[in-house]
Simulated assay, not measured.
Amino acid sequence: MGEIVREFVGLPSPLVGRAGAGGHPCQGVYHRPQGENPGTAFIATHYNVDFSEHYLAEHLAARGYGFLGWNTRFRGAEPYFLLDHALAEIGVGVRWLREQAGAERVVLLGNSGGGSLMAAYQSQATEPNVTPVAGMRPVEAIGDLPAGDLFVALAAHAGRPEVLTAWMDPSVTDETDPLSVDPALDPYGEENAPPYGEAFQARYRAAQRARNERITDWAIGELAALDGTRARDRLFNVHRTWADLRMADPSIEPSDRRPNRCYQGDPKRANYGVFGLGSVCTLRSWLSMWSLRTSQCTAAPHLARVTVPSLVVHATADEGVFDSDARAILGALAAADKTLELVKDGHYLPSSRPLAADLIDAWVRGR
């Protein structure tokens, strides 16, 4: 790997000013080969994970590309996420690549949860469709976003409400009590154990969707109750979100993944821990990101507007993204030129990053 230049980029947001301590709302790190200004550059952004030092940045820079690991102001601030605000701040990064870094082609890299986020960005840039969450003003900056030229979905989830619902524990009977449980639906209880029967799986999936809908009903009601008060929103917890049956039962959608594993290790232990998907929300961030009914962070409708050449890379040993997710993304893409590639590795590609970079490099150069 040749010498890689790493340039910090801090830029204003069209929505909020700099922090009192001086930090810019939009921040990232631009990677490029020493002495070069690449004509093709990648941008990768996530809902809340810091992508400034993304694991593929140096690998792709070593192959002659620019790579902007980009963060909106919601990095590390998932409870406050608003999709339209995030899209405006991704647009800041794309414009910087075109106007300051000299990139003639921009590749949108949607990695992990960022898959649906970058699909939403391209969708909005192509055919504006994203609306503000209840009680919020429209964001003018998303009416004229610069579109990407290529789209890559890497180990990507099918959407925020979908992945949370697939992972949430439907045996929770009281949202204020993390220990409440309906034994008939407890995936880790004495009454149920892998391999899970088809009837149990069907009841379980239906109960997961029902839990998501109950929280949405409650959030809408709480927002209405706050109308006219001193408060505009409130925080709440969503407990036990490491309970996808596939995590404990490898016979459901068999793959190269390790059995009884999730991104936090043992799923039963993680399910009762404090680190979980969507574990802290505001009423509006739930409606904006996690609700099956109201969220615009579902990938499929946005992928239907993605017509640029598209690559889907699926890690076959992924503990939380499954073959059905990758094929759903591929099927939803409107691009005439779309390709699915498989890499035998886990979610973060710990053993195959150079291979993945070679694969993406070859695909980009072919277009």
Rank of each mutant, 00 (worst) to 15 (best):
E36A: 11
L164G: 04
Q122N: 09
D174S: 04
G39W: 07
W167G: 08
Q122H: 07
V172N: 06
P128S: 11
E53G: 14
H46G: 10
V163E: 13
L68N: 06
F51M: 15
V152H: 09
E127L: 13
A103G: 04
S52N: 04
F81V: 10
N111W: 15
I43L: 12
G114C: 02
E99D: 02
T126S: 14
G39N: 09
T45P: 04
A57N: 02
G64D: 05
G113N: 13
V92P: 09
R63W: 02
A134R: 15
E104S: 14
L108F: 07
V133W: 02
G148V: 07
L82C: 10
G115Q: 01
T165M: 12
G114N: 00
Q100R: 15
A155I: 08
E140P: 06
A147G: 15
P146W: 00
V172D: 03
G148E: 02
E36P: 05
Y121A: 06
T45C: 05
P128Q: 11
A141T: 08
V163A: 12
E58R: 14
D169W: 01
N37D: 13
E140S: 08
Y65D: 07
N111P: 08
D174N: 03
V163W: 06
L56N: 07
D50E: 12
E127S: 15
A62I: 05
L150D: 03
G66W: 13
R98W: 02
G93Q: 00
G113D: 08
G115N: 05
W167S: 13
A44D: 11
D174R: 01
A41Y: 08
E162I: 15
S52W: 00
R73K: 09
G143D: 12
V49I: 15
A101Y: 02
R75H: 13
G64F: 06
G115D: 00
A62T: 08
